[in-house]
Write a protein that binds this DNA or RNA. Structure first.
Lengths: 370, 370
DNA sequence: TCGGCCTCTGATAGCGCGATCACGGTACCA
DNA sequence: TGGTACCGTGATCGCGCTATCAGAGGCCGA
């Protein structure tokens, strides 16, 4: 191929089996003769500068000149070299996205929204996925993205503790958080989780349930905290007793475990679960324990994943518009890139979606079965 | 794309409020005084070239010189400018991923696998999401990624027709397909879908079911074709009659619709569904129609999404290792980038996961209900 | 008729890095 | 001791593009 692989020489070549860090061996690819701006300029009979102006939509170019240039561009199938462009403009036209476990529905939906908004704005999206959502891992990924010259970062719904640490030691580019980050002090676009939690809980209370149990998400996720706070607020305003909180980790399995535990509480008639996946697990555990949904136990989930309408029974839940959230985050980031100062956008109010997993608490009010 | 938006001409300056395409006004960001290689060189008392060599792990640098340089790098928090680097090496260290609806479990899991493998290899991942999986949309996104100088592309499990068209008009960089693409002639890493389909079907036949119905994925997805072919093969080798194929679009809703239709066939006792989501919808439809799972109807899904173990009943399914598939695709792509010639890797054999959605066909063999 | 100004275009000079070649030094052999 | 072989290092140049400024030409009003 190309050539070299400079390691030749070698008496003591130590070059192989080197851990993949800073250096990495970069062999130039065999040069394909791509046209450059000068080629276009020649073909169009103008100077390279004029070609540049045309491609940048600079106003002061005569229409016919522009035409000639564009014709030459099309003819040669010319494309600007983004590296050369980035070198001189100091703009990479790229933003980074830090995601946690892209297979979580919320995360992947956010990625979609962010990607779409970025594309619309002429930006590329470079993605980094962290296995564990702690500050060190996030920082590591964020740094690598920054090293790649992203102009800004979107961090997808992360742990509060991690965000706080991120806020303290800046990464060098604007950063926004998609999803809850109220307490982190970082600019963010978010959903009003407390409103969602309140809505879910009120629905169950209005249905006649004496109180509502809650299976929360991990303690240090802002989203989880908001939903929990909303649940507490709704119980308080109704004068209902607040049962002990159970914790899950968003996974279906953790919801099932919570369900196994909750099924022992025979007096329980209503549960608000902090996401749909956990609600699915919880419903299974309940049914396995002989408690029917919704006849014996009413359940409300959160997110409205596409499958939720087809759970058995179809799940009453709170819908978050993740794509919109992604778009807003991106808009915030673009503003921050342009103006240098980032702000937060007002929270999106989530939407109640009534399905069949909740029922009136007839039995209780009528003193029936329990 | 030629690009342009030639419509300018307009005597009057029409430069504001222009739709965000090629041109985009690029204003330079306020220059932050980042250190450059010369700064490091000065600090270390060497020439820029030596700094470059150290950072590229070039062998011929005296260890103590290297130390000095690395100390200076750390001191100044120097990071190489990737644009400048890319300009001269002609390597962007970036690969593109074209995904279709990132919220599909398979797609997002693939993204995870690809990202991880790319990161391990020192590459960045730029993502493009297509709304519709046709050749035009894919090509558009692929072109934009190529315009961004990605060194290669991974296309996630796409439609056969789209791939064929892609193969014919090359995009200019190596491309591999993650997921089925046997028939497309493009290099790919894939799962042996036929083996999976056969396994699922055989399981049901061995359980005593006279035959097995199939809810397939979209006709022009290679994955869907493979599973269907495996199903047909298993039926044929067992001498079972082959029922009419139903089609879904991978969505839970489409599975439910298929279920509504299948529930009318009272003689039906076993269904192999081409993915778990559709299986979920189908199970609900069956139950709504009064057919119990698995007592009346046995169901096998495909994918083993994390929720499948908590469906009601827990779903027997075929597990695909998406992350491994993503890694292999990336490896293939890296090979293609290095050697210029792409190959396919041997298909991964999916794994059978037995759960509770399938039962022996007692009734049938005993001539019982139907 | 001329100067001034606007419109359009081009020449030049980097952006920050790595490839190349040249060069001073040391080690080694005859 | 001289020559040869490196080894480690630096000077120079160019990657492809855009910012800047200068300049050619045309238009207008004085």
């Amino acid at each position: 191929m190309g050539d070299d692989d400079t390691a030749t020489d070698g008496t003591a070549t130590d070059d192989s089996a080197r851990p993949g860090n800073v250096g990495e061996q970069i062999e130039p690819l065999p040069p394909r003769p791509l046209p450059v701006m000068a080629d276009v300029a020649r073909a169009a009979g103008v100077s390279p500068m004029t070609v540049s102006r045309v491609l940048n939509d600079h106003p002061s170019v005569r229409p016919e000149t522009r035409e000639r240039v564009l014709a030459a561009v099309a003819e040669l199938e010319y494309r600007r070299n983004p590296a050369a462009r980035a070198l001189v403009t100091r703009r990479s036209q790229t933003v980074g996205v830090v995601a946690f476990d892209a297979t979580l529905y919320g995360q992947s939906a956010l990625v979609s929204g962010v990607e779409q908004a970025a594309r619309d704005a002429g930006y590329f999206v470079s993605i980094g996925i962290v296995k564990e959502m702690n500050a060190r891992a996030i920082r590591e990924v964020a740094d690598s993205l920054v090293a790649q010259s992203v102009e800004g970062l979107v961090v997808l719904a992360a742990r509060v503790s991690a965000l706080q640490e991120l806020r303290d030691r800046t990464v060098g580019v604007p950063m926004v958080v998609a999803g809850g980050a109220h307490r982190s002090g970082l600019p963010s676009a978010s959903v009003d989780q407390a409103a969602g939690g309140r809505r879910a809980t009120r629905h169950l209370l209005f249905r006649g349930h004496r109180t509502v149990w809650h299976v929360a998400g991990p303690e240090d996720w802002d989203d989880a905290r908001g939903r929990l706070a909303g649940w507490q607020a709704a119980l308080a305003e109704a004068g209902a007793v607040e049962p002990r909180v159970l914790r899950g980790d968003w996974s279906t399995a953790s919801g099932w475990r919570a369900g196994v535990e909750l099924a022992r509480h025979r007096e329980l008639t209503a549960v608000f679960v902090a996401n749909d996946q956990m609600a699915l697990g919880l419903m299974l555990a309940m049914k396995q324990a002989g408690r029917r949904v919704p006849e014996d136990v009413s359940i409300v989930g959160y997110d409205d994943v596409p499958e939720a309408a087809f759970y058995d029974p179809p799940l009453t839940t709170i819908r978050q518009d993740f794509e919109e959230l992604g778009r807003r985050s991106m808009q915030l980031l673009l503003d921050a890139i342009d103006t240098g100062s980032a702000s937060s956008s007002p929270p999106i109010i989530p939407e109640f979606v009534g399905r069949l997993s909740t029922a009136d608490a007839f039995d209780l009010t009528a003193g029936g079965r329990r």
